[in-house]
Deep mutational scan, measured.
Amino acid sequence: MQRVNMIMAESPGLITICLLGYLLSAECTVFLDHENANKILNRPKRYNSGKLEEFVQGNLERECMEEKCSFEEAREVFENTERTTEFWKQYVDGDQCESNPCLNGGSCKDDINSYECWCPFGFEGKNCELDVTCNIKNGRCEQFCKNSADNKVVCSCTEGYRLAENQKSCEPAVPFPCGRVSVSQTSKLTRAETVFPDVDYVNSTEAETILDNITQSTQSFNDFTRVVGGEDAKPGQFPWQVVLNGKVDAFCGGSIVNEKWIVTAAHCVETGVKITVVAGEHNIEETEHTEQKRNVIRIIPHHNYNAAINKYNHDIALLELDEPLVLNSYVTPICIADKEYTNIFLKFGSGYVSGWGRVFHKGRSALVLQYLRVPLVDRATCLRSTKFTIYNNMFCAGFHEGGRDSCQGDSGGPHVTEVEGTSFLTGIISWGEECAMKGKYGIYTKVSRYVNWIKEKTKLT
């Protein structure tokens, strides 16, 4: 034993070699072989497995989906700052455009905790909710729209109204504003409101030439003092309507412009014939205590009207009353817009006519005020429907199939267009061939041609 100890002390290297040989010859039971080890760690190889990531292109799944990435790591994937920024906006807080917040056709661009709407022409605001041009839906104005110097929408209202708090709607500024039905039992019968379409306001006024200088022999019209197929109006439903009495009662109609003036057809009036105007009328054979009678003290036909040349060209006249009318729910003026808007309103496509005229061709006159909704007829169809001249200051309205029309005794009465609950004068009943005849239409004086003249002559002093 002493000898062994001496050998170990003198030859430590020998001992180490012996131990190493023993270990190498022993069977290893701690580690699995290569094949079995792979069965336990069965993990798919990654895209760049075996390579240094710093030297390969980034992978979106590896960089940002398996674990949260930084902007720089995302930049490695896209290799483009702009594309990385677009991805980053949604990656950080989701897609803010998912709810489609942009209105009126706006395009949404996502941002971090926010979004941006790219608005089409005519709109602005956070969600493109603000109209900035009158060309689109009248700028959301209830009545009139004008573009300011910086191309912003400025709404306005006709006389007797003021802008509401929203700067879009119009509200009454006087007790009985024009064009409004205020009798409670008839307010439910107000005709369907007309909503502004998209309009090209630059070209809204037709490029028409008034044929002022045409000389033409007097034409022989049949029954051209021209509501057939209409309905009984309720008291106060058309408070701007008046009836004219002269040699015979209810020979023509008219509309209240203001307390002192009536507008009617020029062919209705004769110099030297006494005319009485009755406002607030409903049943011409009954006294309903809503009527107001006034005498006409002055007749002003349009300066281009000449019955000797043509009885229905420039067929418009103004009547001055001896005493002002007292405005109330049964006696209310009709609204008159400017030339541009009167023309736009007419193009809405349908209007209402009213009167006490004959209820059928050569038949009896109506006792109760009649009204009828009539569609506008395109000019080409209008011209083809008659052998008589249709001037540019006239328009056609009615039904091709016949059966409904204005008729004798309705002449001078109103053709009105309702705009968001307020009625505007767009025409004056003038003439036609018979009444409600198939293929024939009622012919009306186009008020847009005469609004400046009306307003100039009827100013209240």
Rank of each mutant, 00 (worst) to 15 (best):
R3D: 06
A9K: 07
P12E: 08
P12L: 15
T16L: 14
T16I: 09
L20R: 02
V30Y: 15
E35L: 06
N36D: 12
A37C: 04
R43Y: 04
P44E: 15
N48P: 15
G50A: 13
E54L: 04
F55K: 14
C69P: 05
S70V: 09
E72G: 05
E73Q: 08
F78C: 04
E79S: 14
N80S: 14
E82Y: 06
R83G: 12
T85A: 09
V92H: 08
D93R: 08
Q96C: 04
Q96N: 15
C97A: 00
P101D: 01
G106A: 06
K109R: 14
D110G: 12
S114I: 04
Y115Q: 02
C117F: 00
E124A: 04
C128G: 00
E129I: 02
T133K: 15
I136F: 13
N138A: 06
R140F: 09
K152P: 07
K152D: 10
V154K: 13
S156K: 08
S156I: 04
C157D: 01
C157G: 01
L163I: 07
P172Q: 07
A173M: 13
F176R: 05
F176Q: 06
C178A: 00
G179N: 02
V183R: 09
V183H: 06
Q185N: 09
T186S: 05
T190N: 06
E193Y: 12
E193K: 10
P197S: 11
D198H: 12
Y201C: 07
A207S: 11
D212K: 07
N222D: 14
R226L: 06
V228H: 08
D232W: 10
P235T: 06
G236Y: 05
Q237L: 09
P239H: 01
W240F: 03
K247Q: 13
K247C: 05
V248Q: 13
V257C: 02
W261K: 01
A265L: 02
A266H: 02
A266M: 04
H267K: 06
G272K: 09
V273P: 10
V273M: 13
I275Y: 06
V277R: 00
V278P: 00
V278M: 07
A279S: 03
N283G: 07
E285P: 12
E285L: 15
P301T: 10
H302K: 02
A307P: 12
A308P: 05
I309Q: 13
K311I: 07
Y312V: 07
N313H: 13
D315C: 01
L319T: 02
E320A: 03
D322V: 03
P324Y: 03
I334C: 02
L346Q: 09
K347Q: 15
G351S: 07
W356R: 09
G357V: 14
V359M: 12
V359F: 12
L372N: 12
L372I: 15
A380I: 09
L383K: 14
F388I: 15
T389Y: 10
Y391G: 14
C396W: 01
A397I: 02
G398N: 03
E401P: 13
R404S: 15
C407P: 04
G413K: 05
T417V: 12
S423T: 09
F424M: 01
L425G: 00
G427D: 01
G427M: 00
G427R: 00
S430A: 09
E433I: 05
E434Y: 11
Y441M: 11
T445V: 10
K446H: 04
W453E: 00
I454A: 01
I454S: 01
K457H: 15
